[in-house]
């Protein structure tokens, strides 16, 4: 029996054992990630202006082209990883894409010359690093209990039921990549100049969360 919130897969792309499938739900998320990645690719970044309170003084922050270029590269890599996570049909592959989103998020702000932002990015990096433990542990329990990692097989309902703890671990792993209540560091990372690149951090973890909700409903 196929029982999922995303609907029946409309198209399945075969990569060996790792199927990539598109349901109305995952297509929506995929298109959102794709649109934003294209926006990052073609748009010109903002320039931040600091205005001193109670006076006329203001200063524009100068950001070098090479730094912006690096940040755009990281934002695009983050977009690609998010797109991969949206459509993959394999639990382990999903965890890998999630880990990749975490590291590219650090990369987006790593080059910013602001102590505050770098402190926040460091704390975020630590949490994202630690989050891979429950993330991959969740995938390992999926494999041990059901004997398979394919979401298509989980959908069919013929495999043993997935224990709640595996779903919880997968969920905690994704939440650690920057969802509430572990959002504080990410919110501080937004102080970095260079929208729309920094917005990619937020969008990627939001989309990841929406996807993991679908995944834990399977099996």
């Amino acid at each position: 029996m196929i029982n999922l919130i995303g609907g029946v897969p409309l198209y399945v792309l075969e990569f060996g054992d790792e199927l990539v499938y598109f349901t109305p739900y995952t297509i929506t998320l995929f298109l959102l990630a794709l649109t934003f990645t294209v926006l990052v690719l073609i748009s010109r970044p903002e320039k931040q202006v600091d205005i001193a309170f109670g006076g006329d003084a203001y200063r524009t922050k100068e950001i070098s082209v090479s730094e912006m270029r690096f940040r755009r590269f990281m934002a695009i890599a983050c977009g690609l990883a998010t797109m991969g996570a949206m459509v993959t049909g394999d639990i382990f592959n999903f965890t890998l894409f999630t880990a990749m989103v975490g590291i590219t998020n650090v990369g987006i702000v790593a080059a910013v010359k602001s102590l505050h932002v770098q402190d926040a990015a460091y704390q975020y990096g630590l949490v994202a690093l630690a989050a891979t433990v429950p993330l991959f542990a969740g995938a390992a329990i999926y494999a041990a209990v059901t004997g398979s990692l394919s979401m298509i097989e989980l959908m069919k309902g013929t495999l043993p039921a997935v224990p709640l703890i595996a779903k919880g671990m997968l969920m905690l792993g994704v939440i650690g990549e920057g969802m509430a209540p572990f959002y504080a560091a990410k919110a501080e990372m937004f102080r970095a100049p260079g929208a729309p690149y920094v917005i990619m951090c937020s969008l990627s973890s939001l989309l990841l969360f929406l996807r993991v909700v679908e995944i834990v409903m399977l099996g």
Binding site: D17, G84, N93, L96, M100, I103, G107
Partner: peptide, 18 residues
């Protein structure tokens, strides 16, 4: 499971790039 291998290597390269 070739796609896994590709993504793993990509994560490593991104870390090196940063």
């Amino acid at each position: 499971r070739g796609l896994d291998t590709v993504v793993e290597a990509t994560i490593l390269f991104i870390a090196f790039a940063i």
